[in-house]
Nucleic acid binder design. Structure first.
Lengths: 148, 148
DNA sequence: TTTATATATTTGTCATGACAAATACATGGC
DNA sequence: GCCATGTATTTGTCATGACAAATATATAAA
């Protein structure tokens, strides 16, 4: 009888923590009257770091699929936070750029992300955070290999 | 300038790991022709452990909100995997019970969950898993306190 | 009892994730 | 150039999460 116990399952607790962290982030966002979702923040983050990414490149960076990146970027474009420019060399593709308004909001979003990290990680020292990070990256490799 | 770096953010990697683990689980479920979602598995798990829970009790156990538990249990009921029985003492509430068909599927789901754990955690030794689990529980307390 | 308020659950809406199908453009082989 | 195939992106559908509003029943207060 291979029975799983969710109370002691790391997998399960990763899922729960992810949900709770996202809730904290949502709350901080709404307290700061930022009409942005955590996933939109994720896209803005990468476009702020490096402009001119395509939808496909964003897909890789964000671990999302084309469909979702497509829809998230549409919303950000409507909100005036990014621009989608047809690539003249490859007319199927877009190059995405963050706008000045997008950069403004991204600055605030960095503060919110910083705050939510402080809340979630309070009482966990730096070496332990390193261990957790290292092992989460290990889990990402494991799962990535399996899904290939 | 408080700038967050997602590449070294534990928060962010928890979110990514959660998504990837869920994808692995989805894949295993579909390979086993189990027409069940990870969230439905979660509900089945608790109803298998202890029958007669209300929607509200399930909500607490699963970290979901009423709306979602309500919809998930509706689908499981339609699929014949659980039963919702009006509580005679409190006619607002239901008592939920897993059916024999639900128990059958739950057995298989335990195996799938076990398998997905093995895939995600491969190469991470037991003491390290303990450390991760302990700290994820710490994060759950931190976030829970903040959201209160 | 009547009324106000609290509780259990459901429904509606929007954003997102998974997944399949559709669109539009590119590229290689003929 | 023309066609088959591949690539970039979009759209549609279903399940779920967040959140607000609605429904039904319970309970407390007047």
């Amino acid at each position: 009888m291979n029975k799983v116990n969710l109370e002691t399952s790391v997998n399960h607790h990763i899922a729960l923590s992810a949900i709770m962290i996202k809730r904290v982030f949502y709350k901080i966002l709404s307290e700061n009257q930022l009409d942005i979702t955590p996933e939109q923040w994720n896209v803005l983050y990468y476009l702020s770091e490096s402009g001119g990414l395509t939808v496909g490149e964003l897909r890789e960076l964000t671990f999302k699929d084309f469909a979702n990146v497509s829809r998230i970027t549409q919303k950000l474009e409507v909100a005036g936070l990014i621009e989608k420019v047809r690539d003249s060399a490859d007319k199927r593709a877009f190059k995405l750029f963050i706008t000045d308004a997008g950069e403004e909001i991204t600055k605030k979003l960095h503060l919110c992300a910083f705050e939510s990290t402080n809340i979630a990680m309070e009482g966990i020292d730096a070496p332990t955070r390193e261990i957790i990070l290292k092992n989460l990256k290990h889990i990402l490799r494991n799962t990535d290999n399996y899904l290939k």
